[in-house]
Design a protein around this nucleic acid. Sequence first.
DNA 1: ACCAAAAGTTAGACGATGCTAACAATCTGT
DNA 2: ACAGATTGTTAGCATCGTCTAACTTTTGGT
Lengths: 152, 152
Amino acid sequence: MTQPETETQVPALTENRPADTRAEAFQGVRAARRSELAEDYVELIAELIQIQGEARPVDIASRMGVTAPTVAKTLDRLARDGLITRAKYRSIFLTDEGRALAKECRHRHEIVLRFLLGLGLDPETAERDAEGIEHYVSERTLELFAAFVARS
Amino acid sequence: MTQPETETQVPALTENRPADTRAEAFQGVRAARRSELAEDYVELIAELIQIQGEARPVDIASRMGVTAPTVAKTLDRLARDGLITRAKYRSIFLTDEGRALAKECRHRHEIVLRFLLGLGLDPETAERDAEGIEHYVSERTLELFAAFVARS
DNA sequence: ACCAAAAGTTAGACGATGCTAACAATCTGT
DNA sequence: ACAGATTGTTAGCATCGTCTAACTTTTGGT
């Protein structure tokens, strides 16, 4: 036991909540983390198809900053999960589901990015931060971000 | 090949950037992801010590929403990484490094949370989103968040 | 002081995400 | 049309983070 109980003062906003609520929040974060990579890939694939006409593993690898085998394995998982279709040595296609996810992700990404820019962040940092934040923003928050962008 | 090239219009903000810059952003996200769990644990441990006098695995498990063995293994990694010290069947202590990290995390968490609340988000959702977002917010962005909170 | 309950640990499995090394297929320039 | 470069795949490995099952230690009530 032995409680010091003195120092920094309890932040209050966060701490006085039931353990279960907290646990749910963390479970939500873990769920988001699981879909994060899939979202990034699908978003990038959609983009490559749009601007290059096709999505090839080599381009995904260079933009994601990972090696080709890593891309291959991830693409296999995406295919297994019904987000893309692929054939050996050929370029990648999104399924309807994948396309829908890509659209949603791009939408979120755009809003988060514009929001950060609207807040006064430099484009470089805004892009970096958006890449991480976009997966953890709830629908409500996204709406607030959008509203902020609209009125700024 | 075969390019549709028609539909949604390229978002522009995101896409016309060198692949390397993008790769760096993703590498940053992956780095953040790696430290995310450690940060959450250390933050929670600090909090438990503060409000309960000690941090025990069972409390961590219930608040993180994971099982005891998961906590045990994670704590081993934290100890290996010099963030905590522990002895068998005893409660957990933060090292100086761990305490510093916890302080920094709490600070970030507080700012992000207040920012979201200031934006008009309900406390429940704000807490959930903050839990995910806090790990992906750069120093610059944090400053902007703090400024926003201050003037709102 | 003992025994049951609670807490903690260990072992072992599994999937995700990354890597390197080695091999196979495709593309390209002459 | 073929050789070399590029791209893609496969195999194999490591680490992380999660779990369940089984075991051990500590704690608390009578």
